[in-house]
C-alpha cells in the first residue's frame, strides 16, 4: 500500500501484489460561476514522480536506462545478453513492465540479477509512480538500472520515469520506416539499437534508409547495430553504457 502518494490506479500490480487506490476529494460548492486559470502541465504529476526517482538515482549513483520498443523486437533477449556480458563489471537491477505475467522478470532472475515485475493491467505504459514503488523493492547502488517498458512504440514516449536516457530498440524484422511511423518515440530516445542484424542476409531491410529516417526524426540520436545472438556490435553498446556511467550524466532534465 502507498504511504507517500495518493495511489489512484487499481490495475497495477508489482510482483503480483495489487496496489490499493483511494477515493477523490470533494470540495464545498460555491454557486458563482467563474474562471480559474490553471496553466498546469497535464503530466506534471508524473513528472514529479519522475523527478523524485531521478533524485534517488543521483543519490545512489545509478544510471537508469528506459528500454522501449514494439512487442516482439527482442528487448528481453537483448537485455539478458547485455546483463550476462557486463554483470562482472558493475551491479545491475531490472524493472520489467508488461500488461500480464512475470515471465520476463523470471527470465532476468535466471541470470542472477535482481528484477521486479510491474504488471500494468490494462495500462499501455509504465509511469513514474509505478517505477517509484518498484524501486522500493530493489537495492542498487553504483550500478545500472534497466527499465524494460511495456512493448509499445506510442504511449511510453510521453511518460518520463526519471531515467537518464530512453533507448529505443528496433529489430530488422520490422519495417525500416518505423522511425517515421512512430516519430514521437524515436524523437524522445537518445539511443537506437538496431537489433537482430544477424538476420539481414535473409531480409530486404534497407539499413541506410532506416538510419536516415531515424536521424530525420532525431538528428542527435546515437545508433548501434547489434545482434544479441552472435554478439556482433554489442561491444559498442556496452562501451556507450560504460561511457555514460563514467561521465556524471546521471540526471537528464525531463
Amino acid at each position: 500500500m502507498c504511504t507517500v502518494c495518493g495511489c489512484e490506479t487499481g490495475e497495477m500490480k508489482i510482483d503480483g501484489a495489487q496496489s490499493r487506490g483511494h477515493g477523490h476529494s470533494h470540495a464545498p460548492g460555491f454557486t458563482q460561476e467563474r474562471m480559474v486559470q490553471i496553466e498546469t502541465d497535464i503530466l506534471a504529476k508524473n513528472n514529479e514522480y519522475a523527478a523524485a526517482n531521478r533524485e534517488v538515482f543521483a543519490g545512489s549513483n545509478v544510471l537508469a536506462l528506459n528500454l522501449v520498443s514494439s512487442p516482439g523486437s527482442g528487448k528481453t533477449t537483448l537485455l539478458t545478453r547485455t546483463i550476462e556480458d557486463i554483470a562482472g563489471n558493475t551491479s545491475l537491477a531490472v524493472i520489467e513492465g508488461d500488461q500480464q505475467t512475470t515471465n520476463d522478470a523470471d527470465r532476468i532472475r535466471e541470470t542472477g540479477v535482481q528484477a521486479v515485475q510491474i504488471n500494468t493491467g490494462k495500462g499501455c505504459h509504465l509511469d513514474g509512480h509505478m517505477v517509484g514503488h518498484a524501486l522500493e523493492k530493489l537495492s542498487i547502488e553504483d550500478g545500472i538500472l534497466f527499465i524494460e517498458n511495456v512493448g509499445n512504440l506510442v504511449c511510453p514516449a510521453s511518460f518520463d520515469l526519471g531515467e537518464a536516457h530512453k533507448v529505443v530498440i528496433l529489430s530488422v524484422t520490422e519495417g525500416e520506416d518505423k522511425p517515421i511511423k512512430y516519430p514521437d518515440m524515436f524523437h524522445a530516445s537518445d539511443v537506437m539499437l538496431l537489433t537482430k542484424t544477424d538476420l539481414l542476409p535473409y531480409l530486404d531491410f534497407d539499413v541506410d534508409l532506416c538510419l536516415d529516417y531515424a536521424r530525420r526524426v532525431n538528428p542527435n540520436i546515437e545508433i548501434f547495430q547489434v545482434s544479441p545472438k552472435t554478439g556482433e556490435g554489442m561491444q559498442n553498446w556496452y562501451s556507450w553504457i560504460a561511457s555514460r556511467q563514467a561521465s556524471n550524466e546521471i540526471a537528464r532534465s525531463g
Binding site: 495518493g6 489512484e8 477523490h24 476529494s25 470533494h26 470540495a27 464545498p28 460548492g29 460555491f30 467563474r34 480559474v36 490553471i38 498546469t40 497535464i42 503530466l43 506534471a44 504529476k45 508524473n46 495500462g123 505504459h125 509511469d127
Partner: peptide, 20 residues
C-alpha cells in the same frame, strides 16, 4: 490515463480554489 491526470489536477484545484 491522461484524463485521469486531468481529473486529479481538477480535484486538487477544487479543494485549493473552493469550487464544487
Amino acid at each position: 490515463s491522461i484524463c485521469e491526470n486531468i481529473v486529479s489536477v481538477i480535484e486538487e484545484q477544487a479543494v485549493e480554489q473552493s469550487f464544487g
